[in-house]
Computed example of a mutant assay.
Amino acid sequence: MRKVAAVLLASVCTLASASEPVVDRPAWGKYFSDAGVTGTIVVVDERKTPATTLVFDRERAARRYSPASTYKIPHTLFALDAGAVVDEFQVFKWDGVKRTFAGHNQDQTLRSAMRYSTLWVYEGFARQIGEPKARAYLRSIDYGNADPTTSQGAYWVDGNLRISALEQVAFLRKLYRNALPFKMEHQRLVKDLMVKQATSDWILRAKTGWEGRYGWWVGWVESNEGAVFFALNIDTPRRTEDLPKREQIVRAVLESMNLLSE
């Protein structure tokens, strides 16, 4: 057990600066138990220097899962860079195939495809980008296991791509700073597409993801005090019934940190 704990601690520390403390938050377990789900959350608070990494369920936070639709964040950068999409105004015509989610059954732009997690738009990007280039992009940003292979279905949902909650936050911190190897205007556009809520004091940028067995909510809150990043991963045994709990738990955690007040 001590050896396993040491490995997990090393995994956490490699994703944060050596000078940044990592603190367990067992009290956050109440938010998961109140919601009746199992999961993990990683929060990096940059409002003070050095930043602090706060974790509930450190073991799960280091475990990799399919990113599902949270992958639309880096995937949009790849599509812009590869020329699979020109800008946020380009229209992708609906093919007329009725899908489960009503928001998918219409023409799309980047903004609507991000909002509705429109899978068919991003499947089109994947075909245009191709596996070799996708692998190169993934490696260039050190995204999880950087494996875009699949025997069937979208590789970020049904394939081999995997990422941990800790790695999700590490990626988001780079995006926040426009520090990824992509054009600054593309990184700024992706961040604009991620806006979930805004007041005069703060902006919440976030993206959901759902593989079927588990779900994500990742993003950050930015204000004049600095940014607070988060990545939540929960099991979803009751499927769609559990999906609202992703945002519910994250908001409870952030509110306990005096964030998201209006």
Rank of each mutant, 00 (worst) to 15 (best):
A179T: 00
L110Q: 05
K48C: 10
L175Y: 01
L54P: 03
C13Y: 07
S151Y: 07
K207D: 02
E211L: 11
W210A: 00
V22A: 15
K30Y: 10
E185Y: 12
S66Y: 07
S261M: 11
A113T: 14
E211I: 06
L260E: 09
V44Q: 05
K133M: 12
A27G: 05
F171P: 04
T52A: 13
D158W: 13
V190M: 09
F125Y: 13
L166Q: 11
V12F: 10
A35R: 04
W210H: 01
P74R: 12
R111I: 02
L161A: 08
R177F: 03
R213S: 14
L232F: 00
A79Q: 10
W120F: 00
L180V: 11
A134R: 03
A154V: 08
R64K: 15
Q248A: 05
G103W: 09
L8P: 07
Q168M: 07
T40F: 06
T14Q: 07
G153P: 02
F78W: 12
S17G: 10
S151E: 13
N258E: 15
A170Q: 14
K191M: 15
Q168L: 03
Q187N: 05
I73H: 04
T208H: 01
G215P: 00
N178M: 05
V23H: 03
V157M: 11
T199N: 01
P21D: 04
S261F: 14
D87T: 04
G153R: 02
E59W: 11
S11F: 12
S140E: 02
Y31K: 05
R246P: 06
D81R: 13
A5N: 15
D81V: 07
F101D: 06
D242Y: 11
D24M: 15
R239C: 02
N233H: 00
T208M: 05
R239W: 12
V228E: 03
A51Q: 12
R162F: 05
P21H: 04
S33Y: 01
S200H: 07
Y71E: 01
G103V: 12
L193F: 09
Q197L: 10
V121N: 03
M114F: 10
A10R: 14
G219K: 00
Y122R: 12
R162A: 10
R47Q: 09
R127A: 13
G144Q: 02
T208K: 01
H75S: 13
G215K: 02
A18W: 14
V44A: 12
L260H: 08
V4W: 08
G153H: 04
I73W: 08
V157P: 09
R63L: 13
Y137H: 14
F101Q: 07
T40Y: 04
